[in-house]
Simulated assay, not measured.
Amino acid sequence: MKAPSPLVYAKRADAYVKQRKCVSAVRDCDAALEMNPDSAKALKTRGLARRYLGHWTRAQLDLARGQSIDYDEQTAATQKLVQGKFDKARSSTIRAKKQKREAEARAEKEERIRKAAEEREAAAGAAAAAAGAAGAGAGGFPGMGGMPGMGGMPGMGGMPGMGGGGMPNIPPELLNTLMSDPSLMAAMQKPKVMAALQECMSNPAAFTKYQNDPEIMDLVKKLGGLMGG
């Protein structure tokens, strides 16, 4: 049996469109275009079917190509309507993608800010704990026999809640003071400094090994002053 011609497929597709059987119409148009890719009838009919299916991009492409082969006013009116829907859908898609990118960027920024704040707070807490542990273990900074340049800073006696070197219960105002001091926070970002402070926090006796390190001692002196030494 001889297969239907492209025109037969296209005419049947047109009948399907009028019955709003648009999926069947697209299928027949596909068959017609496989045999004749330049069938204006099949292209315009498939474009119309896709219009009713809400496939605006594909509908616009089919109608534009069909009109370039065989222009007619009726299809031009449909094409204008489809173009408007296509432009609106494209704008909506672009806007949605932009909003998604902006939301992701905001979330990433907020996460960076949150992590940075946590790191600063942890560094300030560790520094305060280490300084308190060092002071408690040494009986007060100058109580170790008078350290040069310390100016006779009285013994700190440890910070409340130290519990033998654990993280202290740092008063909020003190923590804010520590975190708002740029030079202090910059010093505590150095791995060497943080390692020394953490060592002193876990073992106050280790404080003695840093007596001749001006960087560590300057920081400890400053911390002592902030904590009321």
Rank of each mutant, 00 (worst) to 15 (best):
Q83C: 09
A124P: 00
I94S: 13
K80D: 12
K88R: 14
A117T: 01
R106I: 09
S91E: 15
R90K: 14
K85C: 09
P148K: 10
K100E: 15
G145K: 03
A105T: 09
R101M: 09
K98A: 14
G151P: 04
I113D: 01
K80R: 12
A127S: 10
K88W: 11
Q83E: 13
A126Y: 12
K109S: 10
S91V: 12
A105D: 11
E111F: 00
S91G: 14
D87Q: 04
F86Q: 12
G84M: 02
G137W: 03
K97Y: 06
K80Q: 11
P142R: 13
E119A: 04
A89P: 04
D87W: 03
G149V: 00
G145C: 02
G135T: 09
K98V: 14
E119C: 00
G84A: 01
K115Q: 14
A105C: 08
G125K: 08
P148Q: 10
A134W: 07
R101W: 07
A133M: 11
K109M: 14
I94C: 12
G125P: 06
R95I: 12
M153D: 06
S91L: 15
G135R: 08
G155W: 02
A128I: 05
G145V: 01
G139F: 03
R112T: 06
E111R: 05
G145N: 05
A129W: 00
G140W: 00
K85W: 13
K109C: 08
S91D: 15
G139C: 04
G84D: 00
I113W: 00
A107N: 01
A129G: 05
A134C: 10
R90L: 07
E118F: 02
M156P: 05
G135Q: 11
K98F: 14
A129H: 01
A130G: 08
G135M: 10
E110F: 00
E118D: 14
G137A: 01
M156R: 10
L81A: 08
M144Y: 14
G137R: 02
P154H: 03
M150W: 08
A129E: 01
G135A: 09
I94N: 14
A130L: 04
K115C: 07
A89Q: 11
E108M: 09
K109R: 15
M156L: 10
K100M: 10
G139K: 04
D87N: 06
G132C: 05
G155C: 03
K109Y: 10
R114G: 02
M156E: 09
A133I: 05
A122M: 11
R112Q: 10
M147F: 11
R112C: 02
V82D: 03
A128F: 05
A127K: 08
A103Q: 09
G137E: 01
A133R: 09
A105F: 06
A123D: 10
A130Q: 06
Q99R: 15
R90H: 07
A123F: 06
R120E: 11
G143F: 07
A105W: 08
S92D: 15
M147P: 13
G149F: 04
A131I: 05
G139H: 06
G149S: 06
D87Y: 03
P142I: 11
R112K: 13
L81P: 08
S92P: 11
R106L: 12
A124M: 01
L81G: 07
R101E: 13
G149L: 03
S91R: 15
A136H: 13
Q99C: 12
A123N: 07
R106C: 07
A131K: 03
F141Q: 05
G139P: 04
A105M: 12
P148V: 05
